Simulated assay, not measured.
Amino acid sequence: MKFKEFLRERIPKYLRELSPLPVAKPVSFIGAKPVIIDSRIKYRIEPAINPLPYPKTHKMTMFKHNIVFEGPLGKLGVQIPEGLNVVEEDGYEENESADKEFYYRLKSKWQRRFVRSMFGTCRQLMEQYAYGVLDGYKVPLTLVGVGFRASVEGENLDLRLGFCHPVIIKIPSDIKVEVPFPTRIIVSGITMGKVKNFAAIIRSKYKPEPYKGKGIYIGEEKCYMKKRKSQYGNKR
């Protein structure tokens, strides 16, 4: 007896007639969450200047249009891939002050892997950029150590960290650095990623060490102290 005939005898007829139902892959819940846009922010959707193409096997472009936010602190744009729609909504049920704000929601057309992976990313970038052009981001740093001090000289940040030479870091054009007093640095900007990245570069020049506690601390960072190692071991 062949295998197919064996299955026909063993499997009931009503089960053989059933066809497997297509199972839809889940879409990111973060991407479907609406983005609150303050009324003080100007926004527009424009086509991408240089759209990035897919490989030759695909006929669609990867990034087709941008959504641009303009606020008191500057202008930022988010690249939206083809397959995601930006839908404007006048209000949202959970917020009472909906008449003063706009809500954007991303909707996915296709279930391609790239579109699914960019669904939540684009939504988070829209929220970060909308907040950045309005209020901006700030990261404070504290210098702890004898003789540690900082100063801004033109486009450079001058750090004195106990070395025989000063540590000079060039400040990017879209980053603002303030030194209210010698042991305090405030890094600010409209892009959260660039602000935190520059703060991490400053911290890398002298990371907090666990024996004396000297170093550059970001925000409320704490360093857990260790006991100093004895040269001769424990004496009895």
Rank of each mutant, 00 (worst) to 15 (best):
G162Y: 07
E220H: 15
R160M: 15
K75E: 14
E221R: 06
E96R: 09
V179P: 00
M225D: 03
R116C: 03
K212V: 13
F3D: 08
V179Y: 03
K214S: 09
K42P: 00
S173C: 07
F63W: 09
V87K: 15
V68P: 01
E101S: 07
K138M: 12
F181L: 06
A32Y: 11
T121A: 15
R8Q: 08
S108K: 08
P172N: 02
W110N: 10
Q231N: 01
Y131W: 11
G162F: 08
R123L: 09
G162A: 05
G71L: 09
K207P: 07
L7C: 01
H65W: 08
L18I: 09
I216T: 14
M60S: 15
V152R: 12
G233V: 01
F148L: 03
T183M: 12
E153V: 12
Y104C: 04
P12Y: 01
K109C: 00
R160Y: 15
L157G: 04
R113V: 11
P20L: 06
V179I: 10
R44Q: 14
S188T: 15
G91I: 08
S28E: 08
V78G: 01
P180R: 07
M60G: 13
E70T: 00
E82W: 03
G74P: 01
P166H: 12
D38Q: 06
Q128A: 14
